[in-house]
């Protein structure tokens, strides 16, 4: 369960995220979409405890990230958009490193890690230095590390970047399986087809504010759109929002 309450973050004069409130129930895959610079990555970073909000709060399974960051992070699996890793460790060593930080059971680690590496098609590469991995392989390794400790909430920034079609299919299935087991997902993406295929609920962020949220059908009603295509719905909602913003600016002037 994820709860964001009046989350606000400013960078100088720019308001990156403006009083954002939403909740993601247990076992739900929530897609977070928006144009470039809308505030998606800032939101994700606040949820993962990488940056602190200026006001508002993040609660993960009722645990306040601001007050108990270590406790909250313990139940999160965080997958960033760019796979920066310790290049001089091997894949297996990185998994062990992660397991030690998250306190994964030592006895079962070896079996779990092997199963993970096999699932993400990295078993043959387990003893190679990460610097020799391709972009997609690094992304898969990060995913394996993120679910190693059985998190109840997974936060993902651009999940499919760098993955090949087989990888995308595998990840989609995995996410759906984990969601069915009760894991909540918060996925930020530009790839609207993925949001449409994978997500139970979708939120649209624009200029730091959440301008629409609900299922695809809810969004269609909100946009007054007849198409079944999320792209058309998204464009309509964001353009209307943009026009509204311009109109209010002109009125003010």
């Amino acid at each position: 369960m994820i709860e964001l309450k009046n989350l606000t973050k400013r960078y100088g004069r720019t308001v990156a995220v403006d009083r954002l409130s939403l909740s993601v129930a247990k076992g739900i895959i929530f897609g977070f979409i928006g144009p470039n610079g809308a505030g998606k990555t800032t939101t994700i970073k606040m949820m993962g405890g990488l940056i602190a909000p200026d006001s508002g709060r993040v609660e993960i399974n009722g645990i306040n990230m601001g007050r108990f960051p270590e406790k909250a992070k313990q139940i999160i699996g965080f997958i960033p958009d760019r796979p920066y890793l310790y290049e001089k460790l091997t894949g297996m060593e990185f998994l062990k490193f992660t397991a030690d930080l998250y306190g994964v059971d030592q006895e079962s680690f070896s079996d779990t890690a092997h199963a993970m590496l096999e699932r993400f098609s990295l078993l043959d590469w387990k003893n190679e230095l990460i610097e020799a991995y391709s972009h997609g392989m690094k992304q898969r390794l990060i995913m394996a590390a993120a679910i190693l400790h059985d998190p109840t909430v997974i936060i993902v920034d651009e999940p499919m970047v760098g993955l090949d079609p087989a990888g995308i299919r595998m990840v989609k299935k995995l996410f759906q399986k984990l969601a069915a087991e009760g894991v909540s997902f918060f996925i930020s993406t530009h790839t609207l087809s993925i949001a449409q295929d994978l997500c139970d609920r979708i939120g649209i962020i624009h200029n730091g504010r959440l301008i629409a949220t609900g299922t695809l059908d809810d969004l269609k009603i909100q946009a007054n759109a007849s198409e079944d295509d999320l792209e058309a719905v998204f464009l309509k909602i964001t353009q209307e929002e943009q026009l509204g913003a311009q109109y209010s600016q002109i009125s003010k002037d």
Binding site: G48, L50, K73, Q74, F78, P80, R82, Y84
Partner: peptide, 10 residues
């Protein structure tokens, strides 16, 4: 740039 690992870990 792998500092995110430290910041997102418990």
């Amino acid at each position: 740039e792998a500092f995110w690992i430290v910041r997102s870990s418990p």
